[in-house]
Design a protein around this nucleic acid. Structure first.
Lengths: 275, 275
DNA sequence: TGCTGTGAACGTGTTCACAGCT
DNA sequence: AGCTGTGAACACGTTCACAGCA
C-alpha cells in the first residue's frame, strides 16, 4: 500500500507550467519490496542483486556523459581518479558505483572507455530507443519538443499533445500536435515509453491518467503537483520553483552564518581572544 | 578544501541546451558540526542549530505549496496526516521535518495554516525578493523568462543575457536581452541573487564565472556540465537527459523483474507448486 | 608499483513508537 | 481521546583503508 508515488514527494512551483527541478529519491532503487506489510517485512528474494542505489544510478548517467566526452577526445582508458574528477565526485564513490554494475576495470591500469560506456548503457537500459511523448506545448513544452539532447541520447520525441485547438495540427519541432483526448490511443499505437508532463498543474493528473491508460510506465512531471499513479508507474518530478527555494534557503543560511561569525569575531576581539 | 561544488556531482545531458533534472545533495545542510571527535575536527560551535537536513528543506518547499493551496480553499488548521497525504509523504516524516524549524503545532489539534506558512517562508528565506537572471535565451531560456511561477513566488526575473547579436535588445517577457559580457556589471547593479544558466554546455563555465564576478552566490544550472565555483557559491543542477536515463533504468529493471517473475511462475507451475 | 574492487566504519536520513500537551 | 514532538532504532548511502591482481 502506502507507496503511491516513488518520489519521496517534493514538488513545488505554485502556479504555472514551467516548473522544474527536483529529483532525488529516498527509496533504494532495488525494491521497497515489502513482502507482507507492516507486520514485518518479508525478505522476499529480490530476484538477482538488482540492488543499485538510486543515487548511484543518477551518477552512472553522469559518468556516461563524461565518458562520451572523453571518447570524443580519443581517450582509450581512464583511471577512477580521472573519471571521478571530471564527474565531480571522489574516486572511492566512483569505484563503488561502478562495482554495482560489475567489474570491468583492470587493476593497475583503469577502465577502457568503450567497455565502461557500453556496460553503463546496458545497465541503464539505453541499448534500445525509448519513445517520448510531450504533453502541454506551452513555453516549456516547446523547449522540450525541440530539445536536441533527447533524440541524441536515445529518447526520440514521437508525440505531442495539448488542449488548445489553435495548436492542434501545428507542427512543433517537425511533429504535429494532437489533442490530449487522443493520448491513450496514440501512445499505445506508437509504443510511447515515457510521458513528459509540461501542463499547468490543474491538468496534470488527468493527463497522467491518460498516459497510464495509453500504457506509459514512466512519467517525467514538470507540473507542481503530486501525481497519483498505479504502483507499476514510475514518476519523477522536476520543479523549478522548489529549486529556487532551496537556493534561497542557502542564501539565508549563509547570510546568518556570516552575521553570527561577525558577531563572534567581535565578541572574541573585545575579549582579547585570538581567533 | 575539497568541496568545490555542493552538489555531489551528477549531471548529464550530452549535447545541447535544454537539459534538465537533478538535485539531491548528500551533504547535510547545516554543518558537519562534528564535535572535537577522535581524529579531530574542531568543535566549531555551529551557531545555533541550523541543522536542517537538505532533504527536509526540499520537502518544506513542497509543504509550502500545499499549504498555499489549502489556504486558498479556506482551511485554517491542518493535521500532520492531512498535510502529509497532500504532499505525498508520511506523517512521521512531515512532523520530523517541521520539528526542525520549531514547534508551531497544537497537540490534539494540528497546525494553523497561516502560522506554518510564514514559519516555513521565514526558514527558507522567502520573506524578501530574490532577483533572478536568466542566461541563454534559447528555447529553455524563453520558457524560463516567461515562467509565471518565478515572480509569483518571490523570484522576479530581472535580467536576461545571451551571446547572439540578433537577440540583444529584443524584449523577452517584457525584459530586454543583454550581452553576456555585461553580466558582471548588470548583476552587480541590479543586485541579482540567483543566476540561471540555460546555455549550451560549452558556454556554461564562462557564464558561471561572470555571474560570480557579478556577485551572484546561487546558480541553477541547466547545462549538462559540472561547474567549478568558489566555495561560497551554491550550485544546483537540473539535467533532463539524466532524468530520462533514470526512468529508463527503472523501465529496464521492471522489464527484467517481470521476465524473471514469469520464469519463476513457469518454473513453479511446472513443479506443481502453488504461487 | 599502481590502481581496482570491496568489507567495514561511519554518518545521514527515515521510520517507529510513545511520552506529553490540549 | 487525539495529535504533536521527539528519542531511539533502523536503513541507506558515503567514505575509508586495504587486500588483491596486473
Amino acid at each position: 500500500m502506502a507507496r503511491v508515488q516513488r518520489d519521496g514527494g517534493d514538488d513545488s512551483a505554485p502556479t504555472t507550467e514551467l516548473p522544474a527541478v527536483r529529483d532525488q529519491d529516498p527509496s533504494a532503487v532495488s525494491e521497497p519490496v515489502t513482502g507482507s506489510v507492516n507486520g514485518r517485512k518479508v525478505p522476499m528474494a529480490t530476484d538477482k542483486a538488482r540492488a543499485i542505489p538510486e543515487a548511484a544510478v543518477a551518477r552512472l548517467a553522469v559518468y556516461l556523459r563524461v565518458l562520451s566526452g572523453m571518447a570524443e577526445q580519443g581517450a582509450v582508458t581512464v583511471s577512477s581518479e580521472e573519471l571521478a574528477t571530471a564527474a565531480g565526485v571522489n574516486s572511492a564513490k566512483l569505484r563503488k558505483d561502478l562495482s554495482y554494475i560489475g567489474t570491468y576495470g583492470t587493476r593497475g591500469v583503469g577502465y577502457e572507455v568503450d567497455v565502461l560506456t557500453s556496460e553503463i548503457e546496458r545497465v541503464l537500459g539505453l541499448t534500445g530507443q525509448q519513445k517520448v511523448a510531450v504533453v502541454g506545448i506551452g513555453n516549456l513544452g516547446h523547449a522540450l519538443a525541440n530539445y536536441g539532447g533527447f533524440p541524441g541520447r536515445g529518447f526520440p520525441v514521437e508525440a505531442l499533445f495539448d488542449v488548445d485547438p489553435d495548436l492542434i495540427g501545428i507542427p512543433v519541432g517537425g511533429l504535429p500536435v494532437n489533442h490530449i483526448d487522443d493520448i491513450p490511443d496514440i501512445c499505445a499505437k506508437r509504443k510511447i515509453a515515457i510521458g513528459v508532463i509540461a501542463t499547468p498543474p490543474t491538468a496534470a493528473q488527468a493527463v497522467c491518467d491518460r498516459l497510464v491508460d495509453g500504457g506509459v510506465h514512466c512519467v517525467l512531471n514538470f507540473a507542481p503537483v503530486v501525481l497519483q499513479v498505479p504502483e507499476h508507474v514510475e514518476v519523477r518530478k522536476v520543479d523549478l520553483a522548489i529549486e529556487l527555494q532551496i537556493l534561497s534557503f542557502h542564501v539565508a543560511r549563509n547570510a546568518e552564518q556570516r552575521a553570527s561569525r561577525r558577531a563572534a569575531a567581535a565578541r572574541a576581539s573585545s575579549n582579547g581572544e585570538v581567533v
